[in-house]
Design a binder for these strands. Structure first.
Lengths: 75, 75
DNA sequence: AGTAATTTGTTCGTATGTATC
DNA sequence: AGATACATACGAACAAATTAC
């Protein structure tokens, strides 16, 4: 069992990817399930990381649709 | 079964109590377990609410000790 | 038009780790 | 050394909204 990244490190990584333009504003991010696979984490942990990013305004979640980067977000 | 308050409402309520001086800076807040009883919620839900307040800087958690209101926090 | 599948949102419980008392 | 308390991780179940067919 590899050492888990932890939801904070996952949030940091996602934030960095967004800042780097990997997920441009308006584009959909991977789903919880996909992120969970990407980071070898449980869905609950991903949700915790995303909740952090949402509180910063870096990500907006739309129920039923997905996770998006707001058009105007600035790191 | 009463309708649950939800972690956002719980966070709002706690933030308001802190702002009202019910928990002065430097003082310890109730424990997770106590808060869970106060709000008739599960500990996980309380933790989610507290995580929100921590991201705002309204609360600081000290492992093994408790939850505290920072001396300099301003609503 | 309507149903099923997908996806995020919320709640809860359990287990384990780590720091403090 | 033991008890207490926060931190983290995971999973299960259900709700709510959107999307796909």
């Amino acid at each position: 069992m590899p050492i888990p990244m932890g939801y904070r490190r996952i949030a940091d990584d996602l934030r960095a990817r967004i800042a780097a333009g990997e997920y441009p504003p308006g584009e959909r991010l991977p789903t919880y399930k996909e992120l969970a696979e990407m980071y070898s984490a449980g869905v609950s942990t991903i949700q915790k990381a995303v909740l952090l990013l949402q509180s910063e305004g870096a990500v907006v979640g739309v129920q039923g649709a997905g996770l998006y980067v707001p058009e105007d977000w600035k790191p």
